[in-house]
Amino acid sequence: MQTISSTAGEVTSRELRQPQSPLVTIKGEPLPLTSSKFVLSDLAFYYGKVQALAGISITIPANHITAIIGPSGCGKSTLLRTLNRMNDLIPKTRIEGQVFLDGDDIYSPNVDVVDVRRRVGMVFQRPNPFPMSIYDNVSYGPRLYGVTKRADLDQIVEFSLQQAALWDEVKDKLTQSGMALSGGQQQRLCIARALAVEPDAILMDEPASALDPIATLKIEELMQTLKSSYTIVIVTHNMQQAARVSEFTAFMMIDQNRAGTLVEFGETAQIFTRPKNRQTEDYVTGRFG
């Protein structure tokens, strides 16, 4: 059995009020506080004694796609997993600082972690459908959260698969195994599965790195249609993908203590045409990293 030490008990001294949002602008206009989905305040994260993240403060706008880029080992995935407390599942981890989701500190003691993970869904690098039918893959979450009526589940499955742009391809074979789909379809099935529990945000960790270019573009197009209803945060090694799909980009690097830090955050158009930081410039032009 795993020892989960990153419990809320360790962070009881935290201030439970959401801090002032660091200045985020959209096309030069300041982002209203109500338009932020996540606010991270001086976040640090430790795997045992090893510090993986240090001093990260960032505001992630709602209903936009934010990309996290940076060289291998800079803490991108660790940062992503702090947004739905996925790191809690890793033994001997510890967090400092705060992560606010819609103004609520998700690491505060009275927070239901299961509810956090319902509100913030996740899609992984390799498609990981459950070894069950397409229908059961999508209805699994809603059933877990108490939906039992067949008609309700039917509606959720159809709506989720439609949102994931997969319905037309699978509507006649819902009883077939999800494992029998192509890689791209499996990934969209995983997205449908995440959408079925009506999340606020979706985290994507290299969601297209195992897919061919056409399947990749389908996922990217899907992200564009989903952002009107969901906040999407994507970790990607593919800078062209970050440039194509996201409106905001966070660039991370490791500091002198080998902990991941945020170097620059801004509108994607700015980061990829006139970054303010020299390290960002070197990274996005491929001269470093």
Binding site: M239, I271, F272, T273, T280, E281, T285
Partner: peptide
């Protein structure tokens, strides 16, 4: 070459 930032400018 997918130029970015300074390279693109």
């Amino acid at each position: 070459q997918q130029p970015m930032a300074h390279d693109l400018r």
